[in-house]
Design a protein around this nucleic acid. Structure first.
Lengths: 199, 199
DNA sequence: GTCTATATACAGATAGAC
DNA sequence: GTCTATCTGTATATAGAC
């Protein structure tokens, strides 16, 4: 049941950094959240910057992948696409603030990306490209299609406060709205496929 | 040719706040950018917060609208949709950092949205709804469709550093990639319309 | 209106006892 | 490893001369 101090710090730092961003976060707040002393943060991680980078690396790795598994399964193209959409939407529903935090952090400091694995998209692009070659998806640029797909999944979360206000929805109404998102995205995607569904 | 001090401050504050966010921006940097003294900022705007809110209000108003004009023109549904996409993509190309700044700012402080006009989306939704009723667009939830449309337009800009890195594109390659975006988005949208094009 | 100089507050980081 | 106390830098904001 004992949680190590380091783990407590990491949990606390994740919460505060994701909520407040690097500039907005206070070491004192992280210490309070972890129920330890401020000095201990510097004992475990030398500086705020080092702590932040540690958290960011950790979080970034949850951001993109987990899709590889879906791609490898024996499924129709459309089922795989649905698996990808479903995977992202689930992750986003559980971590609604994560994407804006990551995207903003990389905007503030693009150098961060240099240390991130960049092969992850290759499988996705290759999969889409393959589906197009096999005439299962209509002729679209695979990279562009991928960004459209991701945009449809991520944007409603990234734009949460603006979108819910503009659509005149309360918090709970917007949550309900997002629950219907998967079906609507799949409707769009199905229009981009030929009727070769071999499920 | 004379630019008022207030205008210089606003220009400078826009640049610094959009680049660094509220927490990251320094009043000193804004003063330097405006080539005036720090104390003058407080003379014109009482506090950093007040200055920020002024800038945010200003910028938010450029964010959403400008679309109304397109809607009122005598055009086919598809041409109107193309006008909307084109309008956003142009604006985004000229202000690539604007959306992430606005979205992040509202995430940090959702109360900001309370003072924003929220009727702007109504026209868009009504237009989409109308097109569906008239069987010109396939049966989709209008709000969901709108978010998909906006997601496809905004996401590649909001996710710039992540996306360009993941797609293994240099800055200039990514810019070129974004130039091809309109065509690809319209391909998707055309698949969502019936062949009733009366252009 | 615009400046210099300063007050005030608080952040990140360290020293050193335990 | 963990704490209290403190150093140091720097940010917002104000006072007051011009």
């Amino acid at each position: 049941m004992e949680v190590s101090t380091e783990e407590k710090i990491i949990q606390a730092a994740e919460k505060i950094f994701v909520r407040d961003g690097f500039d907005g976060a206070r070491m004192q707040d992280i210490a309070n959240e972890a129920e330890i002393n401020k000095a201990l943060l510097h004992y475990y991680f030398r500086s705020k910057e080092k702590l932040f980078e540690h958290i960011l690396q950790r979080k970034m790795k949850d951001f993109i992948p987990r899709i590889q598994a879906v791609l490898r399964k024996e499924m129709s193209v459309m089922d795989k696409l649905e698996g990808i959409v479903d995977g992202y939407l689930r992750m986003l529903s559980q971590n609604p603030r994560l994407p804006i935090f990551l995207l903003y952090s990389t905007y503030r400091n693009p150098a961060i990306m240099q240390h991130m694995p960049h092969e992850i998209f290759r499988d996705l692009i290759a999969f889409i490209d393959d589906a197009i070659q096999k005439k299962q998806l209509k002729k679209l640029d695979p990279s562009q299609f991928l960004l459209s797909l991701l945009g449809m999944c991520f944007f409603p979360f990234v734009a949460w406060p603006v979108a819910s206000h503009m659509l005149e929805k309360s918090e709970s109404e917007y949550v309900a709205f997002l629950k219907g998102r998967k079906v609507e995205i799949m409707k769009v995607i199905r229009e981009l496929a030929y009727e070769t569904d071999s499920s």
